[in-house]
């Protein structure tokens, strides 16, 4: 859960695996994508975050040439996802968020079919993955639980030699043990130099796996960068034990600290002091703090959850506000409200 390695990742990608800009897609009156931008560098694991209905799946389906964008550009591995779909699909593998299997085909048959239609399967890897994910490949598709159907698609995708993996909430329905296996396997794929676009709303998964993340809401990218960069834009919580005999919020040293720009919510307890500081002013605050004789120091970087809440917090309040104004809206209006807030 350490942010240190991600901070050293290159901020500007050398080669681009996925380039999307100004993507717009409407379904009837619903505007699913509203000028979405996305940049994924070759070899990185890129987190694609957003609440239900934000447009993550729609974006992936446009990248797969299953849907056609209204306007905007999308390039995948240097080619057009709609016109060059078949050629591109030989180089990528996809795991949908809601895997449906053929009722009368076994899981093993489905894995082979999907992999062969892509261009082949590594039998050794297939066996290893089936073992690791603890899947019974002899059961018919109709008898699998949701988690097991997900495993089938994950195995079919990862047993391939695809250079790009498009994963749409791939672990929905997997139990925590399998989640760990999945993270292992993705880190392995990353070590092999594959590019991964991972749409998710499991934040711990994204924190563990992703070099960079893009956060989208209402069909638009609201933030994109490394977790380190993003944290820089938000507050870090500092807890320190100081050499001050009887610190109180009124003591002059602490009043000076509390008065620094960017420092918030300063509290004391015994000789401990706790405050939050904006990323841009971290340096000043720490310098001032060290003058007080620091005996121990704990810093909490903002969690992804806090990052997300920062972006969706206003959305939530906007929606609440909007709903209050509408009063009891008609059914048709209710359906356009993103699921995250309507459920």
């Amino acid at each position: 859960m350490n942010a240190a390695p991600t901070a050293t990742a290159p901020a500007t990608p050398s080669t681009t695996a996925i380039h999307v800009s100004g993507l717009v897609k409407t379904f009837g009156r619903t505007r699913a994508l509203d000028g979405l931008d996305l940049e994924v560098a070759t070899g990185e694991v890129h987190g694609f975050l957003g609440p239900n209905g934000a447009g993550k799946s729609t974006t992936l389906r446009i990248l797969l040439g299953l849907l056609r964008a209204d306007t905007g550009t999308a390039r995948l591995l240097g080619a057009d996802p709609w016109d060059d779909a078949v050629a591109l699909h030989r180089r990528l593998a996809y795991v949908p968020g809601d895997v449906e299997l053929w009722p009368n085909l076994t899981g093993g048959e489905a894995i082979d079919l999907l992999a062969r239609l892509r261009g082949g399967i590594d039998a050794k890897k297939r066996a290893e993955l089936i073992e690791r994910f603890d899947l019974d490949p002899t059961k018919k598709g109709r008898t699998y639980s949701k988690g097991n159907r997900q495993k089938v698609a994950i195995i079919a995708a990862l047993a391939s030699d695809a250079e790009l993996l498009l994963l749409d909430e791939p672990t929905a329905g997997l139990d925590p043990l399998m989640e760990v296996v999945f993270q292992d396997v993705i880190l392995q794929a990353k070590a092999q130099g594959r590019t991964v676009l991972l749409s998710s709303h499991i934040l711990s998964q994204v924190e563990k796996l992703c070099d960079r993340v893009s956060i989208i809401r209402l069909g638009r990218t609201v933030q994109s960068g490394t977790l380190g960069e993003m944290r820089h834009l938000t507050r870090t919580t500092i807890e320190a034990e100081t050499a001050l005999a009887q610190p109180s919020a009124a003591s002059p040293e602490l009043t000076a600290l509390a008065g620094l720009p960017g420092v918030h919510d300063l509290r004391t307890e015994g000789n401990r002091v706790r405050f939050a500081v904006d990323g841009a002013h971290l340096d000043d605050a720490v310098r001032h703090l060290s003058g007080l004789g620091v005996r121990s120091l704990v810093s909490h970087p903002p969690t992804l959850e806090e990052l997300m809440l920062r972006h969706y917090g206003d959305e939530l309040s906007e929606l609440r506000h909007g709903r209050d104004q509408e009063g009891t809206g008609a059914d048709a209006d209710g359906s356009s409200v993103p699921e995250a807030t309507s459920r």
């Binding site: 076994t106 093993g108 079919l113």
Partner: peptide
């Protein structure tokens, strides 16, 4: 009752016509 099947696909399931 549903029955178990093959763990691997036959060669026929290598092309769309087989499916």
């Amino acid at each position: 009752p549903p029955r178990l099947g093959n763990a691997t696909a036959s060669p026929a399931l290598s092309h769309p016509l087989g499916l």
